[in-house]
């Protein structure tokens, strides 16, 4: 079991190094960093001195080592556009995105898993067919269209909820949260639902497919033949076995949540990392793009490590070795 975790840890480090390398290559090869940082009036001498100061004349591998080392010490360089430290810019935006993503993921799990189970248990029912049709339309509507529709309905027509920004926020340490004010929650609802709907449909369909597979398995048939009460059969035996593959995929989906937060943040002008990333793409602000990548990959890897631990907790085959 320790080996399993360790193996995953090594794989995660590998992914992080690769993404850091990608970010570094972006910085180094997409456009010339010096000409980005200097103006037209800078002399050739000054440019050369800056080039030397930045270490751009060193060997490639040395530069990458320094880049990685700086990152590990929290030095992420400076934005071409705002001239501020990238670390500060990203740090200020992380809470907004994480709160949005987490609430969206919770919505998708809290609604997706029960409906997935229900539709697997009653595969031919009318309600199931209706839910399946709805989710099919759900996966087919682009996230931004869902956002527009929600804005149109609840913001414009009904006027119940705000359509942009985070509403009232509370400062807790360095964390700006909108989870502690009524106003903040009101602002969070539409973006979180928008982001959650797509994940919800995926989760539901996945749970349904896995659950139906498990329900056909020999051990469920055997348990049925022993007269185990249906409640235990479905929720103790089948659901637990369903969750083993499901949590893996949910971990992978977290990447999708973060990615689609870019779209959601754009539609609702939600001041998170995604919006910052979009702005930096428009202005070819390479350092911010690179760091965003690294941060996203880090969250992805972190979530998947947690998933691996959950996996070990659920599945005894990873915890105790067999003798047969």
């Amino acid at each position: 079991m320790a080996f399993f975790i360790l193996k995953r840890l090594i794989q995660s480090v590998f992914v992080m190094i690769a993404v850091a390398f990608l970010a570094f290559s972006l910085f180094r090869f997409v456009g010339d960093p010096v000409s980005q940082m200097t103006g037209v009036e800078t002399s050739a001498e000054d440019s050369a001195r800056l080039r030397e100061e930045l270490g751009l004349n060193d060997a490639f591998i040395v530069q990458f080592g320094r880049f990685t080392n700086n990152m590990l010490h929290g030095d992420f360089g400076y934005s071409y556009r705002t001239r501020q430290p990238v670390a500060d810019m990203i740090a200020a935006r992380i809470p907004a995105t994480l709160e949005l993503g987490t609430v969206a993921l919770l919505i998708s799990l809290l609604v997706g898993i029960p409906t997935g189970v229900y539709t697997a248990l009653r595969p031919r029912g009318f309600v199931t067919q209706a839910i399946l049709l709805t989710t099919l339309v759900g996966v087919s509507i682009p996230t931004f269209v869902i956002g527009i529709m929600l804005i149109f309905l609840f913001g414009v027509q009904l006027g119940w909820l705000p359509t942009f920004g985070r509403g009232g926020t509370v400062q807790i340490g360095g964390w700006t949260s909108s989870l502690f004010t009524f106003d903040g929650w009101r602002a969070l609802i539409l973006p979180a639902v928008t982001l959650g709907v797509y994940q919800l449909t995926l989760t539901m369909r996945l749970v349904r497919a896995e659950m139906m597979e498990v329900l056909r398995s020999d051990y469920i048939r055997f348990a049925t033949a022993r007269g185990i009460p249906y409640r235990s059969l479905y929720f103790r035996h089948a659901l637990a076995n369903t969750m083993v593959p499901v949590i893996t995929i949910i971990g992978l989906q977290f990447g999708g949540v973060i990615a689609f937060s870019i779209v959601t943040e754009s539609v609702f002008q939600w001041p998170g990392m995604g919006l910052l990333f979009l702005e930096s793409i428009r202005f070819v602000d390479i350092p911010v793009m690179g760091v965003y990548l690294v941060v996203i990959a880090f969250f992805f890897v972190l979530v998947n490590m947690i998933v691996d631990l959950l996996y070990v907790a659920i599945d005894p085959r990873l915890r105790v070795r067999g003798d047969g």
């Binding site: 690769a18 972006l26 999708g256 689609f260 990333f277 996203i296 992805f300």
Partner: peptide, 26 residues
């Protein structure tokens, strides 16, 4: 599979945005 892992850590929209961003720079 490791390349696929990295690709998974950078989901579709992100990859597409990134490539577009790079092409703008290059």
């Amino acid at each position: 599979m490791r390349i696929a892992d990295i690709q998974l850590a950078l989901p579709a929209i992100l990859t597409a945005l990134l490539i577009d961003g790079i092409s703008r720079g290059v």
